[in-house]
Structures are given as C-alpha cells and as structure tokens.
C-alpha cells in the first residue's frame, strides 16, 4: 500500500477538523454578538424536536431536496470508478401532522415524490436509468413524555415511532426488462419500523434539540436494507428580532446541525453485502424565516464531513433542502 493513502486520510481528517472548528467559531461569534434578552427559536430543520403541538400539531410541511452520490470510495479512500456512476435524487416531501391528543400525541403521514436516476458509462456513451413517482408512505407518531417549563425556557422529551408501508413501486424494470437496483426503486417493498427518543432544551438565546432514532428494515424478496441509526443534534439561534416582544413578529433563525446516519450492511438471502452500510456525518447550516404567525420557510445545506463507508460505495455529495411549514388548522 502506498504511503500516500494514509497521508490523504490525514489530510481529509484535517480538512474535516478545520471545517468543524470554523463552523464552531462562527456559531460562538454569533451567540456572543447578541444580548441575553434575545431568546426563543423555531423548530430545527433536519433534527426532530420534542414539541408535540402547533408546529407539528396541525400543520402541513413540505420540502424539496436534492441528494446525490458520485465518486467511488474503497474502504474509505477515494478510487477511480471505471463506470463513472452518479446517483441523483430529487424529492418533494409531504408531511401532514395532526395533534391527536392536546400537547401529548401527534400523528403524521409522510409521503415523498421522488425522481431517481443512475448515470454511468463513459462521457461519449452515458447511460441513464431513472424512475419517478411516489415513494413509500410512512405513518409516524410523537408522544410527549416529559415537559419542564420555566419562564422563557423549556425542556421536553418525546418518543418517536414510525411505520413505513411498501406503497412505492419496488419492481420498476430497466430498459432491458431486468429489475432496477433496489436502491434505485421508489419503494423498498418492505414494512419497516422506527423508534427513537427526542430531546429539546431551550434556554436564553440558545435552542438545542437532539434525537436518536433506530430504523429496523425488514426483508422483501430476500433483500433487506441494513438497519439505520440516526443521530442528530441541532443548535438554533434567533437573530431577528433581537428582542421578541409581541407575538407574532417576523423572525429569522440560524441553525447549525450535525446529522449522522450509521447503517448496517444490507443483506441478500441472509448474506451481508460487503459494499453497503457505514457511517455518514453531515454538518448542516440552515436559515429559517417566519414571516407570518402560521408560515415558516427554511433552507439548509448539508455537507458530509465524515464518510466511513463499508467496502466500495459512491460518496455522498452535499444535500440541499428548501421547504415550508404552514400551520393551517
């Protein structure tokens, strides 16, 4: 093995550390720039929050996202991909929550509309496989189990559960009639489950949310995606208005989130697939604008800062997300 490989690894780690330090310094500077009297934020963009009313309680949320993979990694190191493969996903997510029990239980339906494509081959003979349509429908619930309120501060804990149903097409054929790869299908074909815990703590000018959610993915036609552990933490800060006096007022919040996914290897007929699973950590700066009491628009850019992928896999590229939440009920 060439000595250049560990050097590249060290360089990559150094870049990651440098980005984290820069982002942290920017956040600390922002936090220090505003007085203690400024408090209160909104819900995080990529991380769950433990509130079980209003913003999640009777609302419509939608966001558009881009999700791309390109560039091959072998055991964590970049290598040349002979097929020059690229995966592009464009999705529009629709979330419809409903507050079933006041300040206690929120249920929600989530369905994505997806446009997925896989490009491969040399530049002069590029091939593309693509599908589009609605993905799997998920039914989720959030149960508030702890709430400690003090003047202008709150600490809340909620449990999260999700049932994903195989409503999306999972047997779309390619141009020669063979099934498209599982990862390119709109649905997984399996009934999957998720469970987790969410914590939100808001005090002074800072709002902190975190979640740990575990996805149990089941088998369909002998194939199962690996289980996934989501670990997220979000730090929010309201920059405008500097002092929130009378509700409602136009509001701008800044977020810095760390969003991680640790995935087990997928299995085919009970055998682990070497080139699957791994750990990906994204750093996600974001902005929220609340122009009306019942409307919130948000945008975030998720940069993968750590990719510990098993075997040979395409790298995760940055993700862009823009959306709105509308409290309509």
């Amino acid at each position: 093995m060439s000595l250049s490989v560990p050097r590249r690894g060290r360089a990559a780690r150094s870049r990651v550390t440098s980005r984290l330090i820069t982002a942290g310094a920017i956040l600390v500077a922002l936090l220090a720039a505003w007085p203690e009297t400024a408090h209160a934020q909104g819900p995080p963009i990529n991380t769950q929050n433990a509130f079980v009313t209003a913003l999640s309680g009777g609302a419509f949320r939608t966001f558009f996202l881009t999700f791309d993979r390109s560039g091959l990694r072998l055991d964590g190191e970049k290598v040349t991909d002979p097929l020059s493969r690229e995966v592009h996903v464009r999705g529009q997510m629709f979330v419809l929550p409903y507050e079933l029990v006041s300040n206690r239980l929120v249920v929600m339906g989530v369905v994505p509309y997806l446009d997925k494509s896989l490009e491969m081959g040399p530049a002069d003979n590029r091939q593309e496989l693509s599908v589009n349509g609605f993905g799997d429908l998920a039914l989720a619930a959030k149960l508030g189990i702890y709430q400690l309120d003090r003047p202008n501060r709150t600490t809340r804990v909620a449990l999260f559960g999700r049932l994903k149903l195989p409503t999306g097409d999972d047997d779309a054929p390619g141009p020669e009639g063979q099934l498209l790869p599982k990862s390119l299908q709109l649905g997984t074909g399996s009934v999957d489950y998720s469970a987790g815990v969410i914590l939100t703590h808001s005090v002074g000018p800072v709002g902190l949310s975190g979640d740990l959610i575990y996805d149990i993915n089941t088998v369909d036609d002998g194939f199962a995606f690996g289980d996934v552990l989501h670990y997220d933490i979000a730090l929010g800060y309201r920059i405008l208005p500097r002092v929130y006096r009378m509700y409602p007022a136009k509001q701008i919040n800044l977020y810095l989130e760390a969003n991680g996914t640790w995935s087990q290897r997928s299995t085919l007929e009970g055998t682990s697939l070497i080139d699957s699973g791994g750990n990906v950590l994204r750093l996600s700066p974001g902005v929220q604008f609340i122009p009306l009491a019942n409307l919130l628009v948000e945008v975030t850019y998720q940069v993968p800062v750590w990719q510990g992928l098993n075997g040979a896999q395409l790298e995760f590229d940055p993700t862009f997300k823009v959306g709105l939440r509308w409290l309509i009920f």
């Binding site: 408090h39 209160a40 934020q41 909104g42 819900p43 509130f51 009313t53 209003a54 913003l55 309680g57 009777g58 507050e99 006041s102 300040n103 709430q147 309120d149 003090r150 003047p151 202008n152 501060r153 709150t154 808001s202 005090v203 709002g207 929130y244 509700y247 409602p248 007022a249 509001q251 609340i290 009491a293 019942n294 919130l296 409290l327």
Partner: peptide
C-alpha cells in the same frame, strides 16, 4: 396569564388558537 416555557414563538400559534 404567566406562561412558562414560552421560548418558541412559532409554537405560540397553538397557544393563541387555544
């Protein structure tokens, strides 16, 4: 009414409704 925990103005929509 003194309202404790009022740290998320966007969440105050539910309070206003109720």
């Amino acid at each position: 009414v003194q309202v404790d925990g009022l740290s998320c103005p966007f969440c105050a929509y539910g309070l206003e409704k109720k």
